[in-house]
């Protein structure tokens, strides 16, 4: 909620605090050594520092899983919620407090499996928040069970003879949902690209969905190949997209893609040969859900509200001449 008088007071009379990285650091992360989650945490902390976001104005909501320990390590307000339900809590926070920045963190099982219904509908709501899914293609915290994004044939404790089904492609699902306004993909082994992707997502007004491919060093150490170049990928390049620097091109080719073109985005998402990295789709014109809902609500001082309610009670009153 902007209040220009208050802002001016701050400028003139108060010393403006400059936030450092350590202002966003909380408990020491307890993720495994080599886990991609460490890199995402640093990336988010850099983002908040670069944007100079006051830690108290951020709520980080997560579900359950390795990734969902995220809020414990980020010094903002945090809500470590239930398996699959992070998006519902996040939606509630934003509906209640449109002035607060909301960051939602989930894993692949969390979002695409048990949270499937909320995933689908949250994208349609298009509430203004940043949503990150750390996708390591496995359930790790519960000790290696197949997830919806586990590839066919993947060995796990629940698929000891190999996963039966072809994996779910979250990108095509998301691009099929009405009101999808922002979809990007990056990977933890591409830190610069991931930073730039998160910056793009943060600045989007609406629900920005970022799938981050992330290595699980314990259960899936070779899942995305040994070196960045091993995993077949392509970078999406565009002036409005995520910048592709020359170093990245050593790992995969780049293709030109206009992120406003949803048909082309769907074709790219459908491509099973190469994983697309960058901004697949962006539509900044769609209204956000909290904007739509709050825009229709009559705001009143307490006494005004009671007076209006009292007039409403008249319609249930049993005295005609009242």
């Amino acid at each position: 909620m902007s209040n220009s008088i208050y802002d001016e007071l701050l400028e003139s009379e108060c010393e403006i605090k400059e936030y450092e990285l350590e202002d966003y650091e909380s408990n020491t992360p307890r993720w495994c050594k080599g886990c991609g989650d460490h890199g995402i945490l640093s990336s988010v902390q850099r983002l908040l520092r670069d944007r100079q976001i006051a830690p108290e104005n951020v709520v980080c909501v997560s579900g359950i899983g390795c990734s969902s320990r995220f809020p414990h390590y980020l010094k903002t307000y945090g809500f470590h919620s239930l398996h699959g339900r992070a998006l519902t809590v996040a939606t509630g926070v934003k509906l209640s407090r449109p002035d607060i920045h909301v960051l939602t963190v989930m894993g692949d099982g969390d979002c695409f499996s048990i949270g499937g219904n909320h995933w689908l509908h949250s994208i349609r709501y298009n509430t203004n928040m940043t949503v990150l899914v750390f996708d390591n293609e496995i359930y790790a915290l519960t000790k290696m069970q197949a997830s919806p994004t586990s590839r066919q044939g993947q060995y796990s404790n629940t698929s000891p003879r190999g996963a039966y089904l072809d994996s779910l492609n979250p990108l095509t699902v998301i691009l099929g949902i009405t009101n999808c306004s922002f979809l990007a993909q990056s990977a933890t082994w591409l830190p610069g690209h991931m930073d730039a992707t998160l910056q793009r997502a943060w600045d989007h007004k609406g629900l920005s969905f970022v799938r981050i491919l992330q290595k699980c060093p314990v259960y899936m150490p070779k899942n995305f190949g040994e070196t960045p170049g091993d995993y077949p990928a392509q970078f999406l390049s565009h002036t409005e997209g995520v910048p592709v620097d020359r170093g990245l091109l050593r790992t995969a080719p780049a293709v030109e893609h206009d992120p406003r073109d949803i048909h082309r985005a769907r074709e790219i998402a459908q491509d099973s040969e190469r994983a697309p990295f960058g901004l697949l789709y962006h539509n900044p014109e769609l209204p956000s859900y909290e904007e739509l809902r709050h825009g229709r609500v009559t705001r009143m001082a307490p006494q005004e509200r009671l007076d209006a309610l009292d007039r409403k009670l008249d319609t249930f009153a049993l005295k005609l001449d009242d």
Partner: peptide
């Protein structure tokens, strides 16, 4: 809406309470 609030029809019963929990956590009891 005329009296300062709104009804959110959630996608399911679980989301309905999840949204209420999030809103309450953020300071406005839902």
């Amino acid at each position: 809406e005329d009296l300062g609030g709104f009804v959110h029809q959630a996608e399911d019963e679980i989301a309905a309470i999840g949204v209420a929990v999030g809103a309450s956590f953020a300071g406005r009891t839902a």
